[in-house]
Write a protein that binds this DNA or RNA. Structure first.
Lengths: 214, 214
DNA sequence: GGCGATTATGGCACAAAGTGCCGAATAATG
DNA sequence: CATTATTCGGCACTTTGTGCCATAATCGCC
């Protein structure tokens, strides 16, 4: 039986398709580029394209997905004694530092294409879930029953989100690492005011029963 | 000129379309339901459907969008002296209390339909942006230059997200208000540990320059 | 109420995504 | 070389979403 060592060839074709599509996308808008053209430029048929990518968006995220996987893996692999929230920060800092120009151009493309933004949102959600599970594992908690991993993940992402948002917005020129520094600084300096306000205003309204589980 | 008091009729048709679609969706899966059927059941043509809704998803979110708008408006309209983070909590608590069964069934539908989940993500993003702007206005800050509104919004959403996630997940039976209480409680009790860990681990690594703005 | 203008509607055609199916080319195995 | 599995290409089909135009409903006005 020809049991398909074609796994190697399959990768090659997939890479070629990505390559061609990304090259075409430097000139054209994502929506105006049809799969017909991508397939033709790569020398395969439209039908074959769909055997390698489930959708037009996939051909762009073939790169970006890898980045997210890398980040998640790095977070999980960090030393167990490191603070979980800090671990997320450090992994992020490390991977953004290694960002090459091509990935940066891709991020730009995603930012100005609605259908790609959707995929990015899904990616972020997956990443978040991965982080939640990683944090739960570190703390020895069940993320299905205990809310702490969820809360911790949100806290960890807060400075990241703020930095990314500023970068995507009107501060694209600045370095992402510096923006993250600023976001962390803001977070640390403002935390007392935040928590104080939250505490004083919600507690008198309704006394939450103490959750029984430890 | 027939300047179209048809605004009234337009609303009626839109409502009818929504009504019909939602009724059909109690039996059928979202993906298997075609616009052709919705239009036929409502007594209009497929082409006319697209004059009232831009996509099949819109017909579901005609209801859900209103809820998000209400929440955003309620947050903005809260007394100015109330703590911003607490304001978000209280608005959310108030609106979820008024959640009727239909909206609940809709949320279920969204949860089990990928294409609708996508729209929900967009909704959340819009809501978040609205909250950021509302917080910026309260604090007299420019959300384009200052990261504090971003950070505050994330903090405010953290317990909400945790509560919603638990509710959507394996604790759908419990009351959403109680879950929010638990999330808030967790947040308040854990905040010191979180911030301590974050501080000690990031600062020695790279000293962020103090941002100049006050 | 009738008439001209505006607006909504329906039908048609069309592009493009995505999928199922089948025959042909291709490559591995004996 | 022959067989057999796998991939590829082409074709047809469904569905979404949009542009265009003729027709029917509606409105303002006389």
């Amino acid at each position: 039986m020809a049991v398909a060592i074609g796994e190697r060839k399959r990768r090659a074709v997939r890479g070629e398709l990505s390559e061609v599509a990304l090259r075409l996308l430097t000139d054209r808008a994502f929506d105006s580029l049809t799969i017909e053209e991508i397939a033709a430029a790569a020398g395969v048929s439209r039908r074959t394209f769909f055997r390698y990518f489930a959708s037009k968006e996939d051909v762009v995220f073939a790169f970006l997905d890898r980045w997210a996987v890398l980040l998640a893996a790095d977070i999980v692999a960090r030393p167990a004694d490191e603070d979980p929230v800090a671990a997320v920060q450090n992994s992020f800092r490390q991977l953004t530092a290694a960002y090459n120009d091509r990935a940066l151009a891709l991020v730009r493309l995603v930012r100005e294409t609605p259908s790609l933004q959707e995929r990015e949102r899904i990616n972020r959600e997956h990443l978040r879930i991965a982080v939640v599970n990683a944090l739960a594992t570190r703390l020895g908690l069940d993320s299905e029953r205990d809310m702490r991993p969820q809360i911790l993940a949100t806290i960890a992402f807060a400075p990241l989100d703020a930095a990314m948002f500023a970068w995507f917005g009107n501060r694209a020129g600045e370095e992402i690492g510096r923006l993250l520094d600023e976001a962390l600084d803001t977070f640390v300096r403002e935390r007392d005011a935040m928590c104080a306000g939250l505490e004083s205003s919600t507690k008198p309204q309704r006394r939450p029963r103490q959750p029984g589980r430890q």
